[in-house]
Structure formats: C-alpha cells, structure tokens
Design a binder for these strands. Structure first.
Length: 557
DNA sequence: CGATCCGGCGCC
DNA sequence: AAAGGGCGCCGGATCG
C-alpha cells in the first residue's frame, strides 16, 4: 500500500492520497486537519510506503509530534538520482521542478541550502516551511511519482535502482531521527580532555595556556619576538629567513625539515586545530543536554556518502571521542565495516581470484598469501593504489603484481578511469551516476593564464584527475550503497526497541542501547551486514565482516 | 567593510 | 615513505 502526502503551508493539516502498488490513484484525496495524527493512524493500521516531496522537509515535524514511519519514497532524492542517471546532473530536483519538467512549465531553481543551525534553533515549524508560493499539490505529487516509477523501470538495472531509491529514502528518515536523537556527549569529559591537551582556557577568548606557550617557544626558535604560527605565510617567511625554503607548511613537509622549531610547530598545529574545530566554543554551540546533534545530509556527497551541516560530525578527532560516553545503564554498540572498499572492488569486478581473497577475514593478508609473497603491506598499497589511481612511488611495482594476478579487478577500475579521462560518466553498482566533468571546473576560455592547466578540463592534468575521480567513484559510491543498505535494514530491526541509531560515518555505525539489549543489537547489526551484502551482490563469495564492539566509550571501540 | 578564496588538516 | 579519492571547517589572505 502506498499513500501520497502533502503538508499544508500552515496550520498542520494536509492531504492524503491512497495509491495502488503501481502508483495509480485509489479513491478520492483525503484532506485532513491534523496531518501528524492522520499519518500516525494510517501508519499503525497498514504501514504504507509514504510518498512525499522530501523527507527532510516533511519528517521533522512528524517526528516532533511523536510520529515515526516505516517506509517512504523521497521524490526529491529520487529525482536527483534519476537526473544524474540521465546525464542531467545539477538540474533542479525539487518536486516543483520535476512537475514543471513534466508539464513543460518554466523550471524553478532549487532553493539555496539552509545554513547550519545549532541545536535549539531550526526546531520551529517556521524553518520547515519557509514563506513562499504554495508548493505543488497532491495531483502533481502523484503524477511525478508515477513518472519516476516509469523512469526507474527504464534504467539499465531497475531492480538495483529500486534498491538505491529505497535505501536513499530510508536514509532521509534515519538522518532526521539520528539528528534528533543525537550522539551521547559528556561535556565534562570533553572539558577535561581540552584542559589536559590545551591547558586552561583564556578568560578573554584568546589561545589557551599551552598554545600560548608553544607560540612563544616557536618565536624563540626563530629568534623573533612574535610569530603567528597558524599563518602559513608567516611560517614560510620565518623558515626562509632561517635558510629553509619550503613549498608549503604541510605537516608531512615539515617533518622532513631539520630545524628546532619543527616539532613545536607540528604540536602547535595539532592543538590549534582541536582548539578551533572542537574546543570550548564548539562544545557550547553544538552540545545540548548531553547530546551532540549535528544535521545529517544523506546524499550530500556526489558519491552518495552522507554529509553534515555544521558541527563537523564526520571529522571528530580520535582524541575527542573519549567524550562520547553511553548513558548510565546503556552501551554503545560500535560497528565498523573493515576493508569495505577493497571488498566492494572484489564483489563488483567479478574477479574470481580477488573474490576468493575477499572471503577471508583479512583481505589484505589473503591477497598477500595469494600473490604478494606474504607481504601484507605491499598487497595493501597495491589495492589502495589501484582504487585511488596512484601512479608513483613504492606502489608501482606492487601495482604491476596486482595487474598480473587480478586482471579482471584491475581492469574494472582501469576502465572507469579511461571512461572518465575520455569525458564519459560512470555508475555505481546500484546506478548512482557521477557528475559530469564540467561540474567543479571554472569556465574555460576566459583568457586567464593557467600555466599548469589545473583548471582547464581539456588539459592532460585535468583529464588525469578526472580519471582518478571516476576510478574512485565506482568503488566509493558502491561502498556508500552497501552502508546505506545496512543502515536501512538495521533501522527496521531496531524499530520497536529502546535502542537508537546515534551515529553514522561512511562505514561505521553506532547504536545506543540499554545494556541488556546490547548483545542482541550487535547480532542484529551483523545480520544486517549480511543482508546488505545479499541485497547488493547476491551470493558473492566476498564477505563484508564488521568489527563489532560493545563499549561505554566510543574511544574504546 | 563583508564576501570569497585558499591553505591546512580532521575524518573515511 | 609518499601521495592517489571523497568531504567540512577554520582562520588568514585577498577580492570587490
């Protein structure tokens, strides 16, 4: 059963429209005065798949009203996937835009992305329904949905694309729920970490004690009175005065320099970053009532990975993770898909020999045993180099071994690279399509000098970069699909329990669960990993094992 | 002056 | 050891 739903602009009402399995209207539309109540009643009665314009727009208000739904079809996310598949990446994806394309009307641009809102803000209905012309009605929604079903059927692998759409739509629900739940965060532990690393905070908002000390010692080492160690330009000048010419001040460049300031600068950079990116100001802005509540953006990355808006949730430094602590009587179930991308390559390429290695718990070790004379490090370098497009350094001989022993897998990523270099598009396993090369490049031919050709899509350098991007895309995007599928099935398993999904980072998921349920949750995560593998790849010999731990503190996982 | 670019680094 | 893919975020530098 399907039910299309649109929310009124104001007042909390809306319209429901039952559909049959093929998207055809069944009976008249039903205006309701209390949309949340109507959705809740229908959900408990028949668990329909809800068809709506955008989960990100519709679901937060429902969730605030205490209504959870099991399944949905997210028209906006689906439109983006379908446009990409048709090589029309970047065209407006809103329901209004899709409706306009269907009727030949002028296509409205998508609204600009809303800026990041710290917790406590953005919770009002005001933010969900910004003032503007009324959106398309229920008829438009129903017809765009039917059109999307037809376009999905016309894709190269409709079954896979349906799975992609379902996982992407589920992701929209999970993102809203996970953002609302938040990651358990102990502000007192966070402060203790900061005090230990940085010393006392400055009362006037300046650098904390240890940073100030380091800055003074760095200035001393250069024999100057004062120096902004966080300014790359000043650092370069200071090193130049000391007779050291550097191309930049990146950490790995500095590590090769013999100068007494180097270890101080490296320590300064590390601590400075923690202070500015995850220090006291960050904690005050993003942690409320013991929870860090970032806003997740499913499909926010072209490869299908999630992004976040504000808070840097996907870049929490390891040292700060000690502040992520389960509530008393609860546990964190942390699951990490180890070696996900090489396993994806083994599965999608159809390379039987690599797939056999992928059946092992340690793929790199199996590879080493099979073809690299037992040298695990070399096997790892070869596989990563093949997926990232590495062309130089120690990876070269290892890549030659890989090419000889696993020609099918090697050929898979090579073909993706050649397609990209030639200006073509590549797709993930389920059918997500990469953006065209024009995206992300400045308009060429504006007469600006560009000696190395970095910004010119036609240059050798740009073509090579494009090849590395498409090479990686087919793997990274498929890995994201495996992870989304796991997440969607796990959400289903956790429904009706007290356990909550609280974090998701590319290939890693955290569930906050009552201690007594933690073992059961861990088993569920395992099952969902196996189900994701079967849904994507059928009966592949490749395994996708999860590193599972049940801990009080994220840092102990 | 604010807006935008860029270097640098955190995560995967 | 060196360097390939994807991001977000910060502050400094620079632009208009």
């Amino acid at each position: 059963m399907l039910v299309a739903v649109v929310a009124d602009e104001v007042g909390g009402g809306g319209v429901l429209q039952p559909l049959d399995a093929s998207g055809r209207v069944v009976g008249p539309p039903e205006p309701v005065a209390d949309l949340a109540a109507a959705v809740a009643a229908r959900e408990s009665a028949e668990r329909p798949r809800w068809v709506w314009a955008s989960g990100a727009a519709v679901y937060p208000a429902l969730l605030r009203a205490g209504v959870r739904v099991d399944r949905c079809h997210d028209v906006e996310l689906t439109e983006a996937l379908l446009l990409g598949h048709a090589g029309r990446w970047g065209e407006p994806r809103s329901l209004a835009a899709a409706w306009a394309r269907l009727t030949g009307a002028p296509v409205p641009p998508d609204p600009p992305p809303r800026p990041a809102a710290p917790p406590g803000l953005g919770q009002g209905a005001l933010f969900d329904t910004p003032a503007g012309p009324p959106g398309p009605g229920i008829d438009a929604l129903v017809r765009v949905y039917a059109d999307q079903l037809a376009r999905i059927t016309a894709t190269a692998h409709p079954g896979r694309f349906r799975l992609l759409v379902a996982a992407e739509s589920a992701g929209a629900l999970i993102a809203v729920e996970m953002g609302a739940a938040g990651l358990p965060w102990r502000a007192d532990v966070h402060d203790a970490i900061l005090a230990e690393l940085l010393g006392e905070p400055s009362p006037v908002g300046g650098p904390p004690r240890r940073l100030a000390e380091l800055a003074a010692r760095i200035a001393d080492a250069f024999g100057v009175r004062q120096l902004h160690a966080d300014s790359p330009a000043e650092l370069l000048r200071a090193f130049a005065r000391a007779g050291v010419e550097l191309p930049n001040t990146r950490a790995w460049v500095l590590r090769g320099v013999d100068h007494p300031a180097v270890p101080l600068v490296l320590e300064y950079k590390e601590l400075y970053r923690i202070w500015t990116a995850h220090g006291w100001a960050w904690r005050e802005q993003w942690v409320r009532d013991g929870r860090f509540q970032p806003e997740y953006v499913p499909g926010g990355v072209v490869s299908g990975r999630w992004a976040t808006r504000g808070g840097g949730a996907l870049q929490i430094p390891k040292v700060i993770r000690r502040a992520v602590v389960a509530d008393p009587g609860w546990r964190l179930v942390v699951a990490d898909a180890g070696q996900l991308e090489p396993r994806v390559l083994a599965a999608v390429s159809g390379d039987a020999r690599l797939a056999a290695a992928g059946g092992a718990g340690d793929l790199y070790a199996a590879l080493a045993q099979d073809a690299f004379g037992g040298d695990r490090a070399r096997a790892k370098v070869a596989l990563l180099g093949a997926m990232y497009g590495q062309t130089g350094g120690a990876a070269v001989p290892a890549l030659a071994v890989l090419k000889r022993s696993y020609p099918t897998a090697f050929g898979y990523v090579e073909a993706a690279a050649r397609t990209g270099e030639a200006g073509g598009l590549v797709r993930s396993w389920l059918g997500r399509t990469c953006p065209p090369s024009s995206v992300g490049f400045a308009d060429p031919g504006d007469g600006a000098p560009d000696p190395d050709g970095a910004g010119d899509p036609g240059s050798t350098r740009a073509r090579a970069a494009r090849g590395r991007f498409t090479r990686n895309f087919v793997i990274q995007a498929t890995a994201a699909e495996w992870a989304s599928t796991l997440l969607a099935t796990l959400r289903g398993e956790l429904a009706g329990t007290d356990a909550e999904l609280v974090f998701f980072q590319h290939d890693e998921v955290i569930v906050h669960a009552p201690a007594a349920q933690a073992a059961e949750v861990a088993a569920a995560v395992s099952r969902c990993g196996e189900r994701a593998t079967a849904l994507l790849f059928g009966d592949t010999p490749v395994r996708f094992p999860l590193d599972l731990s049940i801990v009080d503190c994220y840092a102990d996982a």
